[in-house]
């Protein structure tokens, strides 16, 4: 574990990530990923694995590229014309940017909860039923009801909305919308769930429910979560990755990162001297 940085001041070039980026059993592995918005580089030479059935937390100051990186993992950045991606991104050993890879199938396997809640302008029920309907996951109306109810229950929203499943999803509060989007995503049982600050608008109780859900989900799924809450990252993740200005500074087991960070920038950040 050597630090190969030129200096510690801002604007420095970071050549290598500190810590072990390799997982024993990677579900996804990214190598030397660069992301550009036009000429502006938002992600610089990032390599990291997402370990199977584990929660990986991505932390870092605002604007450091966490969302950008996360969106590469299900090719959501394809929808942005000016966004260009280099490097290799493998899902179970398959290159997800290979021209034979169908982004539609990929996204069915890699679900995403967005930073800003984006419920569809449909009923709460239809929001959750959207994915199962598209993918034909429910054989009957009863099946679909079952999926919708369990998904809402898992996201901790069911109690609040059970009497108004047919009212519009956009009429919910910000935090309720966030949980609706989580329910919507888990309704299709993807293999990987990418969560971009899923608890940013939630009260402590709802947050606890979501954290419980994440803990439970990792038995079956692989999870990457962006969060601004150090405590949350420490509570729910097994691996933590610290991003800074588009570079991945340090990766390591969550215990290690939060008790004994190796890189000065990481330490500054988690002790609150930055961001």
């Amino acid at each position: 574990m050597t630090i190969k940085t030129k200096s510690l001041t801002d604007g420095m070039e970071i050549e290598h990530t500190v810590g072990n980026v390799f997982a024993d059993d990677p579900k996804m592995s990214m190598r030397n990923v660069d992301v550009f918005y036009n000429d502006k580089q938002a992600i610089k030479n990032v390599s990291i694995d997402l370990a199977r059935n584990q929660v990986t937390a991505l932390i870092g100051p605002s604007g450091c590229g966490k969302s950008t990186f996360l969106r590469c993992l299900n090719r959501m950045n394809d929808t942005i014309d000016i966004c260009k991606i280099k490097g290799s991104l493998l899902l179970d050993g398959e290159d997800i940017y290979h021209k034979k890879m169908d982004p539609v199938l990929l996204r069915a396997r890699v679900g995403m909860v967005f930073q800003k809640p984006n419920p569809f302008p449909k009923s709460i029920y239809d929001n959750v039923a959207y994915g199962p309907r598209i993918h034909g996951l429910a054989a009957s109306k009863d099946d679909l009801d079952e999926i919708v109810v369990t998904s809402l229950q898992k996201a901790g929203l069911y109690k609040e909305v059970k009497d108004r499943l047919s009212s519009s999803g956009t009429g919910l509060s910000g935090g309720q919308q966030q949980r609706l989007c989580i329910a919507r995503t888990i309704a299709v049982s993807p293999e990987i769930i990418l969560m971009d600050e899923p608890a940013s608008a939630l009260d402590p109780i709802a947050t606890a429910i979501i954290e419980e859900l994440i803990d439970e989900l990792k038995e079956k799924y692989t999870i990457a979560i962006v969060t601004h809450s150090m405590q949350q990252a420490a509570r729910i993740s097994q691996t933590t990755a610290y991003f800074h200005m588009g570079s991945l500074i340090e990766v390591g087991s969550t215990d290690h990162i939060f008790t004994n960070p190796s890189h000065q920038l990481t330490e500054n950040y988690i002790t609150g001297r930055f961001g």
Partner: peptide, 27 residues
């Protein structure tokens, strides 16, 4: 129609035409 809606649908694994039919046109 906000881009986030389209992205939300695509992220669910919907195809472009499903997204247009079920999300964009109604909105």
């Amino acid at each position: 129609v906000p881009k986030a809606l389209k992205e939300g649908s695509l992220a669910m694994g919907a195809t472009e035409s499903e997204t247009i039919k079920k999300i964009l046109l109604p909105a």
